[in-house]
Nucleic acid binder design. Structure first.
Lengths: 233, 233
DNA sequence: GTCTATATGTAGATAGAC
DNA sequence: GTCTATCTACATATAGAC
């Protein structure tokens, strides 16, 4: 006579392991999708490729992430809180600093740095995420997402800049700021053209010069000079 | 008895009509593809959509334009000579003008204007072409085409700017110029974010302000200020 | 030059076995 | 939670009739 089998449907450890495994799979899928979308864009990637890259089967992607659009949106949302927090912390640090108030150079440096550092950092997923943003911000199609995710912090910086000089025209400032962001994004998207055009002659094989952070100071200087010239006629 | 049929295999008029009809169809297909690619990108458009938009059948597209990639490349190439000629003419006019040599503002204005005017002009095909360029220039994937098609004129402008001041560092100038181009392209791609961020409060329905040429002076000022600040430490 | 028909592969999405 | 199998639709490309 066999002893009655002990059923432990609510064994918490078992449940945890199950959830953990599910969560790990979910992350694997998101990571794979992040890498692929950042390289080839939304339309350039199939769910099959994502499944393959993640080492899971097709059905698993749908189970964890819903439709392709849901998956894409999830990826955009996943890291935005971290990035926004870094930008807000940089702004707060400038403000809380004793001494003089922040100038335009410092503000733009603070806005640009968290993103550039993510784009150039050691974590390949963050690098992919940064490149993905560079791909979508200019695209009308994704602006509804961008507005929700990135505009709030952008507005905080715009107001910080406006507070430098009450006479600044908001629309001109917003325009110059968006142009600055476009410059920043283009740098993350690709430095190929810069490297090529830096050569005086066409023939020389272009080499080096593709380290992103090496461009930071020049980028910030460009943005500051551009904003000042555009906003103060 | 019937008279011998006159065979006129080389009837020139007939040949001309045939070629003309083929040429017209070819243009219809290119125009349709130009509109669709500019709105949705290379991967976002199918040959079926192009055929449908052009009012021809699927086979016709392949017959006139080869593969999808061939078609894309043809579209990029079709208008580049006109655009480059306009930019070169603007540069030549500045140079041949009596009086003082052109300054940086005038040079950037000359580079930017033909493109912005095409993007804002009355011809919807040129508008589509301009938007298509804005979509591809930042994309590593298409840089081989961009290098062939657009870099030659860009180099002429870079040299014109360098000749303003022999001490200008080429690599810094090339970087700032490419950042300027990115700003220009982002303006053509979309003004949605500018319009939204120009509103102080989030709620107000964004309106107006989307006329491209209205941004020209501000864009050129932004580029000039940016280049000067980035190049002359 | 044009169009129909089709070859061949892949897309996104999901139902149901395990 | 995962995987197989499959549905339906659409992709690119081309061969051959007219």
């Amino acid at each position: 006579m066999t002893p009655p089998r002990i059923v432990r449907e609510n064994d918490p450890a078992r449940e945890d392991r199950r959830l953990l495994r599910g969560e790990a799979t979910r992350e694997k899928v998101l990571d794979a999708a992040e890498r692929l979308f950042s390289e080839h864009g939304f339309d350039g990637v199939s769910i099959r490729q994502i499944a393959n890259e993640a080492g899971v089967t097709l059905g698993v992607v749908g189970f964890h992430s819903g439709s392709k659009l849901d998956l894409f949106r999830t990826i955009l949302e996943r890291r935005v809180a971290t990035l926004s927090a870094a930008r807000r912390a940089a702004l707060a640090e400038l403000r809380n600093r004793s001494g003089r108030p922040p100038n335009l150079y410092e503000l733009m440096h603070a806005y640009v740095s968290p993103y550039l550092e993510a784009a150039a950092g050691g974590d390949p997923q963050w690098r992919a995420y940064a490149k993905l943003i560079a791909r979508i911000v200019d695209d009308e199609r994704w602006y509804p997402y961008v507005r929700d995710l990135y505009d709030p912090v952008a507005r905080e910086y715009l107001e910080a800049i406006q507070s430098l000089d009450a006479s600044i025209d908001r629309a001109r400032l917003a325009t110059a700021f968006v142009l600055s962001v476009a410059s920043m994004l283009s740098l993350v998207a690709s430095r190929s053209r810069i490297v090529t055009l830096s050569q005086e002659k066409v023939d020389e094989g272009a080499q080096g010069g593709s380290d992103l952070l090496a461009y930071r100071d020049l980028l910030v200087a460009f943005c500051v000079g551009g904003i000042e010239r555009a906003v103060f006629d």
